[in-house]
């Protein structure tokens, strides 16, 4: 099970955003897509999800062109987890997660007992069953992100495409969510997430891809891809990479900034 975008070109109001980007996601891997603000990370995700048609290039699902898929069929293969947002109405966590059953629900029907059982299992698996009757508008950012993941899992899709899942979460919730995503990858889900923090892929991601000037300039193991030179290319700042005594990479730190502690 995999989805792949090849040689994607896309322009927004005449301004080129993507100029030949290629990226693939397979079941069982956790992939980080790194890029600066406005680099086109979200656009590339939308194109992968079939929500945006590329100007040139092709997206394939298991080798077949994406254009041949119906929205509902596609929703059972690839799920989109948007950035945590504020909802206009106070749906409960359970009601939000149940919306993920749409691809399995007939046009004039509502989710039934089997769908409810499926969602209950997912909420328990993600450790948020105790929040089921709480309003989505009244829980924390980390809990909302888990709710949106529950909705994605309810689609029974094996591939999850996540837009900045860590943005807006506090440090503890970021660490816990990364743990959760890693475990989902171990369970066989393919997870693609965007981020702009180069330190996040240093823990847990098997693969990291860099989006620079509309193309994927590097795609591979974090140990090979994440170098000080690559970060300078991405963000235009000079960084040094801090290593542990055993040689493992720990974190990037901007050079030229005073060290206070």
């Amino acid at each position: 099970m995999s989805i792949a975008a090849r040689d994607i070109h896309f322009a927004y109001r005449g301004r080129p955003v993507l100029t030949g980007a290629s990226l693939a996601l397979s079941a069982g891997e956790l992939v980080c897509l790194l890029g600066s603000n406005g680099a086109g990370k979200s656009t590339l995700l939308r194109i992968l999800l079939g929500l945006q048609r590329p100007g040139r290039g092709a997206v394939t699902v298991d080798g077949e062109p994406l254009a041949g898929w119906q929205r509902r069929q596609l929703a059972r293969l690839v799920a989109y987890v948007p950035q945590v947002h504020v909802a206009p109405f106070p749906y409960t966590v359970r009601q939000v997660a149940l919306m993920g059953r749409l691809p399995a629900t007939g046009l004039l029907k509502a989710p039934g007992a089997a769908d409810r059982a499926c969602v209950q299992g997912i909420l328990e698996h993600l450790g948020i069953a105790h929040l089921a009757e709480r309003a989505y508008t009244e829980i924390s950012g980390g809990e909302r992100q888990l709710t949106l993941i529950a909705r994605a899992l309810a689609q029974e899709a094996r591939l999850l495409v996540m837009d900045e899942p860590l943005a807006g979460l506090d440090y503890g919730n970021q660490v816990r969510l990364l743990d959760r995503l890693e475990r989902l990858a171990e369970e066989g889900y393919g997870v693609l997430m965007t981020t702009h923090d180069p330190n996040q892929p240093l823990t847990g991601c098997q693969r990291v891809a860099l989006l620079v000037d509309g193309r994927i300039t590097a795609d591979g193991h974090p140990g090979e891809v994440l170098t000080a030179a690559a970060i300078h290319l991405l963000y235009g700042v000079h960084v040094e990479l801090l290593h542990a005594t055993d040689g493992r990479r720990l974190a990037f730190r901007p050079t030229g900034r005073r060290v206070i502690a």
Binding site: R71, H85, M99, L102, T105
Partner: peptide
């Protein structure tokens, strides 16, 4: 009345609803 459960999904952002399989 017939589509009432689906009206819920229109309160999501268009792309979010589309990714869930809604036309």
């Amino acid at each position: 009345a017939l589509l009432r459960w689906r009206i819920n999904l229109l309160s999501l952002a268009d792309e979010e609803a589309a990714a869930l399989g809604v036309d």
